[in-house]
Simulated assay, not measured.
Amino acid sequence: MKILFVAPWVPSQLRPRSLALLQMLAADHEVRFLSLVHDEAEARLADDLPVLDRTLVPNPRQGAIGRSLHALATGRSLQHGYASPRALTVALEEIIADWRPDVVHLNVFRTVHLVEACGRTPVIVDLDEFRSEYYEQLASHGPNIPWRTLGLVESRRMRAREDDLVRMGVPMMLSAPPEYGEQRPNTYLVRSPYDYPADVSPSGTAAQPASTSDARKAPVVLFVGRLSYEANVSGLLWFVHECWDGIRQQVPDVRLRIVGSEPPRVVRSLVGDGIELYPDAPEIEPHYAAASVAIAPIFRGTGVQMKLIQSLAAGVPTVTTVTVADRAGVRDGVHVRVADDRQGWVDATTSLLNREPGTEQLAAEGREWAVAHHSWAAVRRQLDVAYAAVAGDRFTRR
């Protein structure tokens, strides 16, 4: 089958869902790739993609921001404005006319303004999540007035476009099961795939942190996440400011290891007092191998947190919030420990650090859950179901 994969960025380890689904499709089908790129460094990432052909459309940040400001005045989603240079639509239409793909795969909400441009060619959208939900949360619980204002504006515009897609019958893939009563028609559950490498052992090592030369072995609490994402930064800051001192009082030699891309100054300022920063780490698996406990203190968000999938797949005991656990479908005391206030987080984290009874069983059950739902084998089956529904008899593997 011929698939045109369209993305607002080049899939990479920083965009693991996009990369993994592209790799799965390319293993069994003819795939061409169309993407926006900000600069030459991002464009070079496309050289490693397993596709037949690559069409890259420049999207300089200055122009993208200008279109977002214009969208603010015209009632369109800022996300659409950011990712909608005219050249992208032109390139899409030219590839469809010349190559005649069987399916156009649109990657995330930023590309759904292209649905109509696909004409009669079948479309499937990897929406990942109904992103308006996150902005609704931001509108009500954002960290400050600018963020809450952005949430208020963007949630309404995104919700309107999502509702349009539902009315139009556009097939959509979601990374998490819907909450009770929130099922929408023509949606397919395709979770984010992750297989923890079998050759990474608990003795794995990682690069030296940017913050310290202290090499002594000590219990490690691990936070992994894209640090340009507001919800990650807010959750991490809450954990450090509210919980870290209490944990250190009970486990004095514990270390907090922060692993993430594009750390802002406020995160860099956390370094010290047992806190290490590994910015833009090339691999995350060695950090999971070294971790005693993983944390996902995310209070706003939709879909399933990749950091949760990774930590459970690695067999690392994990503490998270009710929000994250509920969306993923994991249970407190079975797959993870769940807490939502300071004392709950301190108690849950220290009990796992101290390897209290049940810790090893929790880690084992968590890993079993991750393999059953998020392994590559499991997600390939989910992806097959979605594509078979869209492409019908044309959906065959090589």
Rank of each mutant, 00 (worst) to 15 (best):
W147G: 06
S140I: 02
E154S: 07
L189K: 08
V123R: 01
P193R: 02
A215W: 06
Y134L: 15
S201F: 04
E154C: 04
S155E: 14
Q137T: 05
D163S: 10
V200K: 02
R161I: 05
R191Y: 08
A207V: 01
K217Y: 02
D126K: 10
N144H: 14
D214R: 03
P122E: 00
I124N: 08
D199M: 03
A215G: 03
P171N: 07
Y188C: 06
A206W: 03
S175F: 12
Y196R: 11
R148L: 13
D195M: 01
T149R: 15
L138F: 14
A176I: 03
E162T: 04
S132I: 06
D163N: 10
N186G: 00
S211Q: 05
A218C: 04
D164N: 07
Q183S: 00
D214F: 01
A117N: 02
R184Y: 03
P209Q: 12
S140A: 13
R191S: 05
S203N: 02
T121P: 07
A139E: 13
A207C: 00
Y194W: 15
N186D: 08
V125D: 12
A207D: 07
L150P: 03
M158Y: 05
L150R: 11
F109T: 01
F109K: 12
T121E: 09
G119W: 13
M158S: 09
E162V: 03
H113Q: 05
R184L: 02
S192A: 15
A207T: 02
M172V: 06
L150G: 08
T111M: 13
M158P: 04
A160M: 13
P122D: 06
V115L: 10
V112A: 10
A218W: 01
P193D: 01
G151A: 13
A210D: 02
D195R: 07
V125R: 11
G119Y: 08
V115E: 10
K217M: 06
H113D: 04
P171R: 12
D164E: 06
P177M: 04
S211N: 09
T212W: 01
E182V: 08
S140G: 05
V166Y: 11
E179R: 15
S203L: 06
Y135C: 10
L127I: 03
R131E: 12
R161H: 11
I145H: 15
D126T: 06
T111Q: 14
M173R: 12
G151I: 07
S201L: 08
E116L: 06
H141G: 12
V170D: 03
T121K: 02
A215E: 04
L114N: 07
E162K: 09
V115N: 09
E179M: 15
A206L: 10
A139D: 14
G204C: 10
